[in-house]
Write a protein that binds this DNA or RNA. Structure first.
Length: 120
DNA sequence: CGCTTGACCGCAA
DNA sequence: ATTGCGGCCAAGC
């Protein structure tokens, strides 16, 4: 379909921003699997930008159907703090059958496994 | 325009 | 297990 030339021609053009790629990666997480912020960043082609992933999820627009709950901190720890955050995320994960080990997700068993092409 | 904050990460003490 | 430090970087004030 057409070639990829000008990126700002018709207005409705894509500007694959880092945040967008991150959202896409998160949207890819299958039910019952989880990924860490660092992993999401890496798979999005943004090594070391784990924090950016956190920002994107934190500023998610209300109504976003993104499975943000499938993203946890390193070691399977729940990064959210205070409020209903932690409990909510944990509740959702458990509901999906994600195995826990105390307050942490058992990454050894449910950490998402990128299938095909590794991020190169 | 500059400093602070943060859904982070990894390492060291 | 906890605390501290450096790295990274966008949004808020």
């Amino acid at each position: 379909m057409a070639d990829s030339r000008s990126r700002a021609a018709d207005g409705a053009d894509e500007a694959p921003s880092d945040a967008d790629r991150i959202r896409l990666v998160v949207a890819t997480l299958p039910v019952g699997s989880v990924a860490t912020y660092g992993d999401v960043a890496a798979w999005a082609g943004l090594p070391r930008r784990a924090r950016l992933v956190g920002r994107v999820l934190a500023t998610l627009p209300a109504g976003s159907r993104l499975p943000w709950h499938r993203v946890v901190a390193a070691g399977g720890r729940i990064a959210l703090r205070g409020g209903s955050g932690p409990g909510e995320q944990r509740r959702r994960l458990v509901a999906e059958g994600v195995p826990f080990r105390g307050e942490r997700v058992d990454l050894a068993r449910c950490r998402w496994h990128p299938d095909g092409p590794s991020p190169s």
